[in-house]
Write a protein that binds this DNA or RNA. Structure first.
Length: 493
RNA sequence: GGGCCGGUAGCUCAGUGGCAGAGCAGCGGACUCUUAAUCCGUCGGUCGGGGGUUCGAGUCCCCCCCGGCUCACCA
């Protein structure tokens, strides 16, 4: 008999007996973790404590007139003992309850002769009859595709997965606590935007029927948050779901969670300090440690120290150090191409790129993955940074930095461009790039320029990819391991 | 998009041209201290989909779908 049919038949028999297999509530007295503490403290001598527990049955070991079972809730599990002479309606348990069912039990503690804390169940109640069989009890669920498509099944079958996602939640909570301590105000800005902006990315497009207009899912909350700084909110942040219409790989999901914060009267050096301190605080609280195991580019196990200060390295010095190309002397596209060839890149593929793009390729190919120790790469070519102030001592550069840890880009920050006329000129340049086919050029936002005309104070801005921060602090190898429901293709077959 | 690897029972996996298998789960039976319970018996298949080669295809060939890794693209 097919297992699903067997479970449906049991469900039918339960209903015929007048049992509600999907009741409305259950009063539990303790979580299983609390109950374990209670039972362990009580010892043998005390009056046995009575508990009412609820969870899922993850294993049942049936004997003729007695059964052991494992009851598991979010954080812990405990053994149950049911017997024909002490458990009410033992026969129903024996015949109609399956592994995977949600149940509530009431009983008292005892310790088995092998020393395991166990609840002698006097009563049990079905809380939800499971009609689907569970993954194999010993090997669990191994199929990565099923884990992601049916995350509920992954969470049922793997308590470590539950703990990992709880840890991700706690990391976000700690980020909020850190920013709250420093006077940042959490705000919500539009997800549906008439003009998208704040990053170089292609958007998802949608349509509002009543307004008869196109809207975009945001690629960033940046321009709205800076409007709030103009409005006099000194320190604001948003933990935003953002959407970028681009490829999927181990570090990119089309929908991800971006922390953006803006601090009045600050610049990018303040943002570096804030980044260091925020990561230090969160790591210490969530891991109890500032060190992380990681793998260097040549495959060695290394230990990363997240403690401040992080290394500070300019973009050009990074290329000099890791790619062996002194680009401070490279002023033209041809010289950049020659430098790239010298570093071993294939020049034919680079023919159509600008010199900034050639540098970018050099950086991506030769530098990024080697940035294992926490490092701020700072002072990017100005042409890549249309929302950033020029560098105070070198107009070819912009005051922008990106933090890298374990070869992974964690975010993006800058001294925010506040000159409205210069910003308008930057938008004009972006329009030219869009007309020449750059699908990631920033669209012009005239109202944003108007906001700047009212006066944006000196402002430091920081964006942190929270999914990547969670990856870093949990050791996850793929962003799809820290996003509960990552985007998947329609299942084939 | 390219390369490599994978998709076989509910789950975990064997099966490299000749009868589609094992363990777990399920079902029936025995069993009141088990914990990957044990013992006896038993059911269970669109071998990812389609086409081809062959007397014969899970296995070989072609196309397609899904996933993983990787390279490219992309912040």
């Amino acid at each position: 008999m097919d297992e699903r049919e067997a479970r449906r038949a049991k469900l039918q028999r339960l209903r015929e007996k007048g049992v509600d297999p999907y009741p409305h509530r259950f009063d539990r007295s303790h979580t299983i973790a609390e109950a374990r503490r209670l039972g362990e403290e009580a010892g043998d001598d005390a009056e046995p404590a009575r508990v009412r527990l609820a969870g899922r049955l993850t294993a049942i070991r049936r004997m003729g007139k007695a059964s052991f079972a494992q009851l598991e809730d979010q954080d812990a599990q405990i053994q149950l003992y049911l017997t024909v002479d002490k458990t009410e309606d033992f026969q129903s348990f024996k015949e109609l309850v399956d592994r995977g069912d949600m149940v509530g039990v009431e009983g008292t503690f005892f310790v088995t002769k092998t020393g395991e804390l166990t609840v002698q169940a006097e009563r049990f109640v079905l809380l939800a009859k499971a009609l689907q069989p569970l993954p194999e009890k010993y090997h669990g669920l191994r199929d990565v595709e099923t884990m992601r498509r049916q995350r509920y099944l992954h969470l049922i079958a793997d308590s470590e997965a539950r703990q990992l996602f709880k840890k991700g939640s706690r990391i976000v909570l700690l980020v909020r606590a850190f920013l709250d301590q420093r006077g940042f105000v959490e705000v919500r800005t539009p997800t549906l935007q008439p003009i998208y902006g704040g990053a170089a990315a292609r958007p998802f497009r949608t349509y509002h029927n009543e307004l008869k207009r196109d809207l975009y899912l945001r690629i960033s909350p940046e321009l709205y948050l800076k409007r709030l700084i103009v409005g006099g909110l000194d320190r604001v942040y948003e933990i935003a779901s953002v959407f970028r219409n681009e490829g999927i790989d181990s570090h990119h999901n089309p929908e991800f969670t971006l922390l953006e914060l803006y601090q009045s009267f600050a610049d990018y050096t303040d943002m570096m300090k804030l980044t260091e301190e925020m990561v230090r605080f969160v790591a210490q609280e969530v891991n109890g440690s500032l060190t992380l195991p990681a793998r260097s580019v040549d495959g060695h196990e290394v230990e990363i120290d997240l403690g401040p200060p992080w290394r500070r390295l300019t973009y050009l010095d990074a290329i000099k150090e890791y790619a062996g190309v002194d680009v401070s002397t490279v002023a033209t596209r041809d010289e950049a191409l020659a430098a790239a060839a010298g570093a071993g890149l294939t020049v034919t593929e680079l023919q159509e790129l600008t010199w900034e793009e050639v540098l970018g390729r050099l950086f991506d190919e030769r530098v990024e993955r080697r940035l294992v120790e926490p490092t701020f790469i700072m002072d990017y070519p100005a042409a890549l940074c249309p929302l950033t102030k020029r560098h105070r001592s070198d107009p070819r550069l912009a005051e922008r930095f990106e933090p890298f840890v374990a070869g992974m880009e964690l975010g993006n920050a800058f001294s925010e461009l506040s000159d409205p006329e210069y910003q308008a000129a930057q938008f004009a340049l972006q329009r030219e790039r869009a007309q020449s086919g750059d699908e990631e050029a920033h669209p012009t936002d005239d109202d944003y320029v108007t906001a700047l005309e009212y006066g944006l104070p000196p402002t430091g801005g920081l964006g942190i990819g929270l999914d990547r921060l969670v990856m870093l602090l949990t050791g996850a190898a793929s962003i799809r391991d820290v996003i509960l429901f990552p985007l998947q293709r329609a299942s084939g077959g």
